[in-house]
């Protein structure tokens, strides 16, 4: 049973780490090795697209030029997310929480294992 728990937690870690790396650094896909990049894009296509969105202020510029609005486009924080974009953040957020949780659980289980052994030894 414990082995199963470890296996599940380890699998979670392996699966979720790249997602969280993307959340913190949207450029990660461009800078990682081609093989990993293709795997990431294949597995997490939608997330990859969304992760790049915050880094693309150029997209807002043509609109403001056409409208003849002020020279500087509004900050990203003042714009509303599209529903699709927000879904990307939802996925990344939940993946991030489960990743952190999995690491903490792993740490607690290991800690108890080590602590438990010590107690047995002392006894």
């Amino acid at each position: 049973m414990k082995k199963k728990i470890f296996a599940v937690l380890a699998a979670l870690l392996i699966l979720l780490t790249p997602l969280c790396a993307l959340a913190d650094n949207p450029d990660a896909v461009e800078t990682c090795p081609p093989m990993v990049q293709s795997q990431l894009e294949a597995a997490e296509g939608s997330i990859t697209e969304n992760a790049e969105i915050p880094e693309a202020p150029e997209a807002a510029e043509p609109v403001s030029e056409e409208e003849g609005a002020s020279e500087t486009s509004p900050a990203k924080g003042d714009q509303a997310l599209s529903f699709g974009e927000s879904l990307g953040y939802m996925l990344k957020g939940m993946a991030g929480i489960f990743l952190v949780t999995a690491i903490i659980i792993l740490a607690v289980v290991l800690l108890e294992k080590i602590g438990g052994k010590k107690k047995d030894g002392q006894a």
């Binding site: 990203k76 924080g77 003042d78 714009q79 509303a80 997310l81 599209s82 529903f83 974009e85 927000s86 879904l87 953040y89 939802m90 957020g93 939940m94």
Partner: peptide
Amino acid sequence: FFTLSMASVFGFSLR
């Protein structure tokens, strides 16, 4: 995160 999507649908800015 679901509410983030809903608030976006209602037109609230990202912040």
